[in-house]
Design a protein around this nucleic acid. Structure first.
Lengths: 264, 264
DNA sequence: CGGTTGTTTGAATCCGTTCAATACCTGTGG
DNA sequence: CCACAGGTATTGAACGGATTCAAACAACCG
């Protein structure tokens, strides 16, 4: 079984993921995964506000329900897609969480993002018709499959859908430039503080606690994301704890002084 | 007069740029700027292959010529747009070059990209309806103005135009994740080597020499882009020169051993 | 020409890494 | 149930690469 921890594997062996085999109609999966929203299909989905444009007509919603009719379950450590895979769909995280990783020939890796429920996945693939990073589940997860060709053809008539795609993509660009700033200008403590505050904000936006949450990623993955070594991340967690900024016990984190964190 | 060099200024004072005042019909500008392609309008533009989707019909080309009918000249050190400006247009660099800079409240800056002729500008703005970075000319430059609302409405009928927009945006995402990898995993020498090789490749793609070119940006701006201090950049240029990898005289750079650079 | 901006180089410092040892946690099989 | 193994996390000490501080030089422009 593949592990999430080490930041070095998952090369080669493209296209071997049995894509269709694990695609299941939404209704079939509903009873199996307890954490899922009860109601299914976009029209009744609790997360529609984050995933889809606002102000859709009933007709348009009905069409969405037909188009986005399948989810896919991915176990912890498994990949949703790999760099090089042919681009066919974009995804929305329905439950669980992912990391996206780009790699160099020489084995160097960079975690480019962590995605939690409601976040989009796979947008980078549109450019060259193939994915440029691996998307790996940090825990047992479920994604909604959004077939790009179909959603794209909806764009013809639906201006709001065009704007939705633009916004998601543009949002990725903005997110990444923020991360470039972090990597280019911040010192280690600021990076970790920013990371924790960002996670906190996103959990809050999805209705979870902003103060206390469970990290699904290892110290190494955090380091890989922040341009630091895992030891450095660990040391800074400890330091923040000594200073009363956070309480960190393994993967459980409680933010004690958000203001203080922001001022690191 | 504003300077390009120091990596610290250009805050506040949004919206004060007299946008319309400097917008000139393409034909009016044609004789003024010698470096411009002789033929004007997208249908006859030499750079259309890089700026616009392939396979447009004559009808579509004619429509483009009407839509993209103005350029704008920006003098060295002046801004094309600032963070916070209302998003209205995207741009293509027609002549000259730019840097894009994001900044934090605290004055920290990060150069997120350098754009040369043929490169797109302003795509990040689509997300929130306002720009999230400053675009500053590194030399006297000219951009084509692409009014987004109009190009967007062309997307309704023109599938190729929709794909064009997707590809440009997705390309930005890919470019940025590559840069995140550089910032997150490479040591200083590798960053500078990668930077030089990337510039070389892009110049070559635009028909300029891949081996020898003129840097339009200062050492400080390069450092700001690569997450290094200007002294470090300077030292590494000198080191590369000692090792026979490049010949650098001020802003003129000649790549002597591209292979060696790639292996740094 | 002087003044400003940009570049180069050296020496000292410091932050994050590297190397290493130990502890912890979780799931597995005896 | 406990022991064990593998991965994960913490912490210390030494090291090193990039920064900081400083000075001198070059290039540019009015």
């Amino acid at each position: 079984m593949q592990t999430v921890a080490t930041c070095e594997h998952h090369r080669q062996a493209h296209h071997e993921v049995p894509l269709t085999a694990t695609v299941i109609p939404i209704r079939a999966v509903s009873s199996g995964i307890p954490a899922l929203p009860r109601t299914l299909g976009c029209s009744a989905c609790a997360m529609r506000a984050t995933c889809m444009p606002p102000g859709l007509t009933p007709d348009e919603l009905a069409r969405l329900d037909v188009t986005i009719s399948a989810t896919r379950s991915i176990k912890r450590g498994e990949v949703l897609y790999r760099a090089g895979d042919a681009f066919q769909s974009i995804y929305t995280v329905r439950a669980g969480s992912f990391k996206t990783v780009v790699m160099h020939r020489d084995g160097r890796e960079q975690v480019t993002g962590f995605q939690i429920a409601g976040d989009p996945l796979g947008l980078e693939g549109i450019c060259e018709g193939k994915q440029n990073c691996d998307a790996i589940a940090l825990e047992d997860s479920v994604v909604c499959i959004i077939p790009f060709a179909q959603i794209e053809s909806m764009c013809r008539e639906m201006k709001s859908m065009r704007h939705y795609i633009y916004q998601k993509m543009s949002g990725e660009i903005v997110r990444e430039s923020t991360q470039m700033m972090l990597l280019g200008t911040m010192r280690a403590e600021q990076r970790v503080a920013t990371f924790l505050l960002n996670l906190s904000k996103r959990f809050k936006a999805r209705g979870f606690s902003a103060a206390e949450f469970h990290l699904r990623m290892t110290r190494e993955e955090i380091g890989c994301y922040l341009g630091l070594k895992l030891e450095t991340v660990s040391r800074i967690f400890s330091k923040f704890q000594r200073e009363g900024l956070v309480h960190a016990n393994g993967k459980t984190v409680r933010i004690e002084d958000a203001q203080g964190l922001a001022e690191v």
